[in-house]
Design a binder for these strands. Structure first.
Lengths: 228, 228
DNA sequence: CGGACGCCTTGACGGCCATCAAGCTTGCCC
DNA sequence: GGGCAAGCTTGATGGCCGTCAAGGCGTCCG
């Protein structure tokens, strides 16, 4: 991990940091580090001491939990310019709440907890941005809990596909799965076999067309109506 | 809903508000209201405009979601002196993310969103308390998502029972279920029938003793080992 | 005391989905 | 091209748990 160069523009355009002054951004970057990682590389473990939170610059990272039997549930797939592990800012002591692995090689910006906390103290707008971010995460958690508790696997898969489309989309839409299918499966909490069978069923019903990792939804509205 | 009287002590001892000055607490209370509710009374719906968040003074409230088929998943059971719906502080527009019903008659303190946001702006320690609160909620959501995704119903029931005991407890412990069993079932995402059968199985295996809503765990450590 | 109502339990059954085990397709390298 | 490996698909089977239906067991109230 080496020092962060002139990344100020990257931060300026990010929701969480756009309310900071140039001086504050510089201060934050001065304390930050860059970490390159390879595909499959283990980045941190659930429970590890966590002095940083992260902004992904390139590649793809999975955040996941493991059951004692070794089953994996992916909590989030992180894509470039997304931040993660902000929670560690307010924990005492700060520890990662999940495992993190590289899925595609890339680069992380590791932001220092203490520095950012000091800056927060002086920037209520940024405080508010952090809280808004946390709020929207909480929203999505509640949606996921509801989905896991109340809905079957077919619903979860359809819901996931629809989530890949823009919310105002309608009619015929083509999306690309953001990762290998085994990862998608671990994300929607089904086995790869069930994911495969579900996609095939949807396809047989004429609702979607599947070609590798490219899925064409033949009619978004109609798919929405066929969740059960 | 009528004005809040001299409730300052209640707020002073609450985690979220203890960092406020007396003047700020007074200001918050001046804008607050009290709402009494009956058992079974519907308090608000998922999606309703939400000008307040709440502190429960007495009774019990359930926060829940419904599936289109009418199945209910309880997200939280609120007990006196707990706050809820703080998320609405940072939404735009603020809307309740769940339904809320009274489970036992009681009284709510409804705290004004705008007033609290103004106060937050001037009190970084309170900001930080709010963020810490949100962080711990996020933690528990991740635990719940993991449990729903990776564990079977027996595990979830055992996990719930263990959650009712103090974390450092060991040996023989007696707990009282905090609500009717149908609500417990909706909380751990099983049917009442399955909850009943699971408790019976645990009881047949000599792990617990059940008498109405009083459950005696014969050995906490041993129960922990029998989750699967 | 008797009956009714809620709440919980118990039993029988079936469907969903995980598991196990082959096959298939694709890309890669010799 | 041939062979191998990784990722995905397909099939057969079984177990968990939801559904439906009936039965027990308190509590309340006439």
């Amino acid at each position: 991990m080496h020092a962060a160069g002139s990344l100020a523009p990257e931060l300026r355009h990010h929701y969480l940091f756009s309310a900071l002054s140039d001086a504050e951004r510089e201060r934050l970057l001065a304390s930050a580090g860059i970490r390159r990682f390879a595909e499959g590389e283990h980045l941190f473990s659930h429970g590890d001491a966590a002095p940083h939170f992260f902004l992904l610059r390139s590649g793809c990272v999975k955040l996941y939990r493991l059951s004692p039997e070794g089953d994996e549930k992916i909590m989030r797939l992180i894509r470039p310019s997304e931040t993660f592990a902000e929670s560690i800012l307010f924990m005492d002591p700060p520890r990662f709440p999940v495992h993190g692995d590289g899925v595609e090689a890339g680069e992380l910006l590791a932001l220092d907890r203490g520095t950012f906390l000091t800056i927060l103290q002086e920037s209520f707008p940024t405080c508010r941005a952090v809280m808004a971010q946390m709020t929207s995460r909480i929203q999505s958690h509640w949606d996921e809990i509801e989905t896991l508790a109340l809905q079957n696997s077919r619903y979860r898969v359809v819901h996931y596909l629809l989530g890949l489309t823009a919310s105002e989309a309608s009619g015929r839409v083509t999306v690309t799965l953001p990762a290998r299918k085994v990862l998608i499966a671990a994300h929607v909490a089904v086995t790869p076999e069930t994911l495969s069978r579900t996609l095939r069923a949807l396809s047989d019903e004429g609702l979607i067309e599947v070609a590798g990792d490219v899925v064409t939804i033949r009619d978004v509205g109609r798919l929405r109506g066929h969740m059960h």
